[in-house]
C-alpha cells in the first residue's frame, strides 16, 4: 500500500469514522501533562505534544487489573473455586503513540508471550489494538532513541505511522491491520512524491536533532557477573531514594504483584504494577531478602534493562531511549551515564 495523505482539517472526520468501530485513545492534556484517554470530541484533538508523561503501557497492562473472582460464601456451590470473569476486548485504536513507546511494547511482548507461557490478558489486548504512531519531528534533549535500535520515525510495533508535514499528515501503513484501518477510515488519497520527499527530510532532520547518544556495543560481550561485581554501583545508587518513579514511568518495566482482595463474601485476585525499587519486592516470608540493600535494587534495575534482558532474549537492550526516567528522577540519576559506565568500564 502506498503512502496516503490526510489533510489536517480532515482529521476530525477520520477520527469520527474510527469511533464508530473502535474505542479510540488520543493524547489529552491534563494538569499540564499529556496522557492517553478515550476520545470524546474529535474536534478538540491536540497532537502538538512531545510525549505523554506516563508511558502508554497501561493500555495493554493496566496498573491494576482483576484476574479472577471467587465466592467465600459456604452456601455457594462453587465457594472457594477461583474463576475467570468475562472481559471486554473491544477493538481499540491508539492515535499519536510515539515510536519509542510502540517499540517498547515489542520489547515487553517477549516477556508476556514466550514459547512456554502466554499471558492471556496481554495477548488478547494486543490483538485488539491498532496503533497509529506519530513520528517525532521535534525530539527533546533527553531523547536517545537512535542509540538503542529505535528512532524518531521507527516503525517497529506500529500499524500506521503519521508524518506531520504542516498542513497534512502523511500516513504510512506498516501492517495489514493498519492498511485495513486506513481503508475503513476512508483515507485513500495517495501521497505525492513531493510529500514523500518532505517526509524523508523531516525524518532525517529529526534524527540529526537527537544529540544524546549512549554506547551499547560492548554490553553483549561483557560477563553479567563482572558487571554485577563492578565497583561503580555504590556511586550510581548513592542518591537514589528508591521512590520507584523510574519503573512507574518506564515503558519497558513490566513487573507486577498478585494480591487477593476480599469484600464480605466476595473476593478478587488482582495484579498490580510492582517495582524492583521496593524492598518488599523480594522479601521472603522467612525474613530473608536477597535484595535488602538499596544498591542491590538499583543494580537490579539497570542490569535487567541493559544486560539480563539483552542476554536472555537477544533482542537488544530493554530501553527505547524515551528519556522519561532521566526527566523525572527526583535525584537526577541518568541512565545514559549508566550505559557509559556499563559499556566502558
Amino acid at each position: 500500500m502506498s503512502d496516503k495523505v490526510i489533510k489536517k482539517e480532515e482529521l476530525p472526520n477520520v477520527l469520527k469514522i474510527l469511533k464508530e468501530t473502535y474505542e479510540v485513545f488520543v493524547p489529552v492534556k491534563e494538569k499540564g501533562f499529556y496522557r492517553f484517554k478515550v476520545l470524546e470530541d474529535e474536534n478538540k484533538v491536540d497532537l502538538n505534544f512531545t510525549n505523554t508523561r506516563l508511558s502508554p503501557k497501561s493500555l495493554l497492562f493496566p496498573q491494576s487489573e482483576r484476574m479472577f473472582e471467587y465466592s467465600l460464601d459456604e452456601a455457594d456451590e462453587d465457594a472457594y473455586v477461583i474463576k475467570e470473569p468475562p472481559k471486554d476486548y473491544a477493538p481499540t485504536v491508539v492515535v499519536g503513540m510515539r515510536p519509542c513507546d510502540a517499540k517498547a511494547l515489542r520489547l515487553v511482548d517477549v516477556n508476556f508471550v514466550n514459547p512456554e507461557f502466554k499471558d492471556p490478558w496481554w495477548a488478547r489486548r494486543l490483538e485488539s489494538l491498532t496503533l497509529i504512531g506519530l513520528g517525532c519531528k521535534e525530539p527533546c534533549s533527553t531523547c536517545f532513541c537512535t542509540s538503542v535500535n529505535c528512532g524518531p520515525f521507527n516503525e517497529e510495533g506500529l500499524d500506521v505511522l503519521l508524518f506531520d508535514l504542516g498542513k497534512n499528515y502523511m500516513a504510512r501503513a506498516i501492517t495489514e491491520k493498519g492498511a485495513q484501518l486506513l481503508k475503513l477510515a476512508g483515507v485513500s488519497e495517495d501521497a505525492t512524491s513531493d510529500l514523500n520527499k518532505q517526509a524523508e527530510e523531516s525524518k532525517a532532520k529529526a534524527e540529526k536533532q537527537i544529540i544524546s547518544h549512549v554506547p551499547t556495543d560492548k554490553l553483549k560481550e561483557k560477563k553479567a557477573i563482572d558487571l554485577f561485581d563492578a565497583s561503580f554501583w555504590d556511586e550510581v545508587a548513592f542518591a537514589c531514594l528508591n521512590c520507584g518513579t523510574c519503573t512507574f514511568l518506564c515503558p519497558t518495566c513490566w513487573c507486577f504483584d498478585i494480591q487477593d482482595e476480599v469484600n464480605k463474601k466476595k473476593g478478587d485476585r488482582i495484579r498490580n504494577w510492582d517495582s524492583c525499587m521496593f524492598p518488599l519486592f523480594t522479601l521472603h516470608a522467612s525474613g530473608h531478602n536477597p535484595r535488602s540493600e538499596k544498591v542491590q535494587r538499583v543494580r537490579q534495575r539497570f542490569m535487567h534493562k541493559l544486560k539480563y534482558y539483552l542476554d536472555k532474549y537477544d533482542n537488544g537492550v530493554a530501553c527505547v531511549g524515551c528519556g522519561r526516567c532521566v526527566n523525572y528522577c527526583p535525584v537526577n540519576i541518568d541512565i545514559r551515564e549508566v550505559f557509559k559506565l556499563m559499556n566502558e568500564t
Binding site: 507461557f117 498478585i258 510492582d274 523480594t282 521472603h284 537490579q300 535487567h304 544486560k307 539480563y308 542476554d311
Partner: peptide
C-alpha cells in the same frame, strides 16, 4: 533454590538471579 515468587511462570519479574 527458593525465592519470593508470584506468577510462577517467568513473567512477573521478581525471582530472578541474573538472567
Amino acid at each position: 533454590l527458593e525465592m519470593r515468587m508470584k506468577c510462577g511462570i517467568g513473567i512477573c519479574g521478581r525471582c530472578n538471579i541474573g538472567d
